[in-house]
Amino acid sequence: MEKDEKTGEKAPPMILLDKVGKFYGNFRVLSECSTQVAKGEVVVVCGPSGSGKSTLIKCVNGLEPFQEGEILVNGVSVGAASTDLPKLRSHVGMVFQNFELFPHMTILENLTIAQTKVIKRDKAEAEQRAAELLHRVGLHIHATRYPGQLSGGQQQRVAIARALAMDPICMLFDEPTSALDPEMISEVLDVMTELAQDGMTMMCVTHEMGFAKRVAHRVAFIDQGQIVEDVSKDEFFDHPRSERAAQFLSRILHH
């Protein structure tokens, strides 16, 4: 529960969750979840299957409605009825476990559709931005192909580029590598690592502890819908405070 991080003392956090609670019908999925992500900070969220990680991260850009507490993204309340959610989402990038590229569009179209339709960039500018980002993730030669013609790792890199094309102020990742074959995981993690080193604000649900050790500033551990640990990376790996986190770590690290 403590919020005694060295970061975010003065500048308001990019993402702030304050006692967020959520129900599916009568079933409580999240309770009193509080955490924050400062500008430029990378927070890894982990926890056992079914603990509510996906639900939590989808609350951040309002893809899932929540009933209790408050979420602020760059100072804008996600839960407020007056908030223009499409507008808020247009500058919060999100990457999904199953890539979710649009299968009937070419890779280039996947990267330009939201640029032209949502933020009304003209086509040439959108294509230019798309080409830059495809270069950055090493997939520019595939611009005219379709998602179904790419490997999983390539598709996920395209998905990251698609989110970046909107010039997001922060990025949300929901287990971006867990649907990938082992040999493709590193190509995606490399892109994410580079992104983190460029100073992107990131909230990542992932079980890639190597990635967490390498780039995370903080780790939040969720169990049964509660954030039971929210500490610096070193503290999490060296001295997990809760028994559940220690158990989780030993299982995942010795796997």
Binding site: P86, R89, M94
Partner: peptide, 8 residues
């Protein structure tokens, strides 16, 4: 969700 996450 992917469409909405892009702001559509």
């Amino acid at each position: 969700m992917a469409a909405q996450a892009l702001g559509m």
